[in-house]
């Protein structure tokens, strides 16, 4: 029993998986509609949007930081790219728009990384500041109107399907092609964290930046790298989000960052740094999405949702902080 607990606590994503299974079983007993293809695809759609951001959050958490500006970066990159495209190159291919959006995101992320490294202040404080900076700049200088008339390439990429079928009652269900973006980003992040020297450096700095520095890892490079990459991923996530919703809304996303951070923590990444896996982060996202979906499905009033999520964060992070070596 003790050996089993040791193995489970070394791989916290098993706990997350267990919670998902319990939740699915529980909710499907209460509400058989839970297993409908529509609900499954809806879950995947939401997981795609949140999951991409979660990968960036994971990188920062693994390096011992926290980033609450990624939603602002995502929406800034999305809206600015859309505006620029409509202004100068309405027929731009989607790949070009992604590159612009990711570049904008990476630049904003580098600003976070620079501030955190240079002034040695907690990254929470820095990224709260940049969150306001980016959204304030966006709404003051770029625009405040919703853009419904998005560029053609965004529209077609957002509606392109990977898989499409009709259910027995004639509802057409579409699994979006952009789901693949999540898959590719997840695989790349996983390889980065587990197979490269940079991945080791990220975990080393997250465990203890002083010791990592003495071991010869460059703390500056790691800080700039994780925040820059998190920004790049946020730029990608923002573009995917906008394409799936077929809308560029400057007030979107900001305010949901805590849900994503909570999801990554539920997947076993410690806020104090030095741990976390891609599969755990994605399972955490699925868990949060499922909790939100099933609360609605089994008829829990929406007023209770914050209580439930807040409670889940507290209970789950308590469980994870107690695991061996913590």
């Amino acid at each position: 029993m003790k050996a089993l607990w040791g193995r489970v606590s070394a791989r916290p994503e098993f706990i997350t998986l267990g919670l998902i299974v319990l939740l699915v079983l529980g909710v499907s007993l209460l509400e058989p509609r839970f297993f409908s293809p529509q609900n499954l695809v809806a879950t995947i759609r939401t997981t795609t949007r949140l999951g991409i951001f979660a990968l960036g959050v994971l990188l920062v958490l693994a390096a011992g930081g926290i980033d609450v500006s990624f939603t602002a970066i995502g929406v800034f990159a999305l809206y600015t790219t859309t505006t620029l495209t409509l202004m100068f190159f309405p027929t731009a291919p989607f790949a070009l728009m992604l590159i612009v959006s990711m570049t904008l995101g990476a630049l904003m992320g580098l600003l976070n990384g620079f501030m955190v490294w240079r002034f040695a202040v907690p990254s929470l404080i820095v990224t709260i500041g940049t969150q306001y900076l980016f959204t304030g700049f966006l709404k003051t200088f770029v625009g405040t109107k919703h853009i419904m008339d998005i560029p053609a390439a965004m529209d077609s990429s957002g509606t392109a399907s990977l898989l499409q079928f009709s259910t027995a009652d004639g509802v057409r269900v579409t699994l979006p092609l952009l789901f693949l973006v999540l898959v590719v980003t997840a695989v790349l992040t996983h390889l980065l964290l587990t197979r490269t020297l940079m991945g080791r450096a990220v975990f080393a700095v997250g465990g203890s930046s002083a010791i990592a520095g003495r071991l010869g890892f460059s703390v500056r490079t790691v800080q700039l790298f994780v925040f820059g990459t998190a920004g790049l991923i946020a730029g990608l996530g923002g573009m995917v989000h906008g394409s799936l919703n077929r809308l560029a809304n400057p007030s979107d996303l900001v305010g949901t960052e805590l849900d994503v951070i909570a999801a990554v923590v539920l997947g076993g990444a410690r806020v104090s740094g030095g741990s976390g896996t891609v599969i755990g982060a994605l399972l955490g996202v699925v868990l949060v999405v499922l909790i939100n979906n099933s609360l609605i499905l089994i008829g829990v009033p929406s007023t209770w949702q914050k209580v439930v999520i807040g409670g889940v964060i507290l209970v789950a992070s308590g469980v994870f902080s107690k695991r061996s070596g913590a």
Binding site: A262, K306, V307, I309, G310, I313, L314
Partner: peptide, 9 residues
Amino acid sequence: LGTQLLFLG
């Protein structure tokens, strides 16, 4: 962060 959501909820 957890209690923020909890109290708000």
